[in-house]
């Protein structure tokens, strides 16, 4: 808000325009009411409940508000599984964010080079997996990893993997989840990056071309710096999203039942679910959720305030 005020104060024309729109400005707030209601119901409300629950005691499946004090925090932070699950998702986040970022940006830059039919078909194909529910993708992925039935079976067999059990194992869980996550979420990021790249001013591109810029230089030296805001935004989103991984490992561990290579508290969210479903303790589960909130918000604040990519005013 303050940045906007400063901008408008510096510019008398805009200042007047703002004044003129002032009479209808308050009505425009109505347009965001549905969004605010949704945020209150599905984000802020549950978050507030989590804060309350984290201090509550659950003895008979029902909360006694603020009766637990800091007990839930002590119990969760002294559970070795808690840190192990963070260990897993931190490894996963580093790998998945890197792969997701490099892969999506790389493919988007390539797509921005193409102007033919192939490019538009490729764009649609790449986006498709993102349109499927993660639960379904998780289940399909089990089959994708089976050299006997997978369409990529020949690749697996080429490196000596003749059965799923040759490489789908606990030590490879981070890599497997990364591949799954990239397959599922890269499409949306490729689309966002692609639009960002297409949004770069045509005049700039034309003048670069006149100066003898090759397509690769155009992509890397001209387009890439113009979209750094999106890049940082993506990194914030990916880190938050990757730390919260739940659906895919949970579905896979449930589907494989007694033969799962993923334990029931592989990620913090799975641990939260374990506390809830096996111990009936929503208080401990809330602590796990809050720990993720704190990490994600801290990371966002760091990126927004320290990278300079989100500066809205230069004065």
């Amino acid at each position: 808000m303050s940045a906007l005020n400063r901008l408008t104060a510096n510019d008398s024309y805009r200042h007047n325009a703002h004044k003129k729109r002032g009479t209808i400005g308050d009505w425009s707030l109505l347009l965001i009411v549905p969004y605010l209601i949704a945020v209150a119901m599905f984000h802020l409300g549950p978050a507030l409940v989590a804060v309350i629950f984290s201090f509550s005691k659950f003895t008979f499946g029902r909360p006694e508000f603020f009766a637990a004090g800091l007990d839930n925090f002590v119990k969760v932070f002294s559970d070795p599984v808690f840190f192990r699950s963070y260990g897993n998702v931190i490894q996963f986040s580093i790998l998945a964010t890197t792969v997701g970022f490099v892969g999506s940006l790389g493919i988007a830059l390539l797509l921005a080079l193409t102007r033919d039919q192939f490019g538009s078909v490729a764009r649609s194909l790449l986006f498709l997996p993102g349109a499927i529910n993660p639960t379904v993708v998780g289940l399909i992925f089990i089959f994708m990893l089976d050299p006997v039935v997978s369409p990529f079976g020949f690749l697996f067999r080429a490196v000596g993997w003749n059965a799923t059990t040759d490489f789908v194992s606990a030590s490879n869980s981070v890599v497997i989840m990364t591949a799954l996550r990239f397959f599922m979420s890269s499409g949306a990021w490729i689309a966002i990056f692609y639009s960002a790249l297409e949004g770069v001013s045509q005049e700039l591109i034309d003048s670069a071309k006149i100066d003898g810029c090759s397509p690769w230089q155009l992509a890397w030296l001209v387009r890439r710096p113009m979209i750094m805001g999106f890049v940082w935004f993506m990194i914030i989103q990916l880190v938050a999203y990757n730390l919260q991984i739940f659906a895919e490992p949970y579905v896979i561990s449930t589907a494989l039942g007694g033969a799962s290579f993923i334990d029931p508290y592989w990620s913090p969210n799975m641990l939260g679910s374990f506390y809830t479903l096996q111990r009936g303790d929503l208080g401990m589960s809330a602590v796990v959720s809050l720990s993720q909130t704190v990490i994600s918000i801290s990371a966002s604040i760091f990126v927004v305030t320290r990278t300079g990519a989100f500066v809205t005013s230069t004065d």
Partner: peptide, 20 residues
Amino acid sequence: GPPRSSPVFSPFFTDIAAGN
């Protein structure tokens, strides 16, 4: 149950099956 040993054993034995 509860607790259950199966979720502990299975991941380890996937590594044994994989020959790791």
